[in-house]
Structures are given as C-alpha cells and as structure tokens.
Amino acid sequence: MTTPAPFINWHALGQVLLTSVVTGVGIVVLFSVCVYSLAVFRRTGSSVSVRTLNGLIMTVTLIAIAAMVVWGLYVIIHK
C-alpha cells in the first residue's frame, strides 16, 4: 500500500528556503565586501599593498557572484 502524496511539498519548500538563504544572503554579502574593498581601493593615502589586496578581493568577489548567477541559471535551464 502506498502513502498518498501530501498536498504541500514541504521538501521542495524547504529547498527553496535553504537555497534562497544561501545564494541571496551570499550574493549580498559578497557584493558588500566588494563595495567595501572598492572604497578602500579608492581611498587616498592607501599603500600599494593595501590597494593591491583590495583590488584582489574585489576581483574574487565579483567572480564568485558571477559564478553563482551563471551556475544558478545553468541548473534551471538544464534540468
């Protein structure tokens, strides 16, 4: 005897919540770090090493955001 499927797919809703929290908060946090690094990068009087480090952080965060977005769209298109 099989159990009838529940009306509400709690598993899918849970996955929506988990994925949204991870990607939504993740992207906003990464971009905020990027903006902070940009501000330090542009600040007058910053040493070359500080500017280089923040330039690197900006690049890495932007690549990470782009990767998350592209990966997300890829998963949706190819399901």
């Binding site: 929290v21 906003v28 971009f31 903006v35 902070y36 501000a39 600040r43």
Partner: peptide, 22 residues
Amino acid sequence: FATTLSRHLTAKTDGSTKAWGM
C-alpha cells in the same frame, strides 16, 4: 537579514562609493 549584514559590512565605507557601488 541581507540588508542588515550589508549595512554592517559597509558601515565604514564612504557614502558616495557605497551609493555608487550599490
């Protein structure tokens, strides 16, 4: 949650860079 985190992370950022970046 995301707005709160972003606000704290960029608290020491100058206003014009923050506004432009966002």
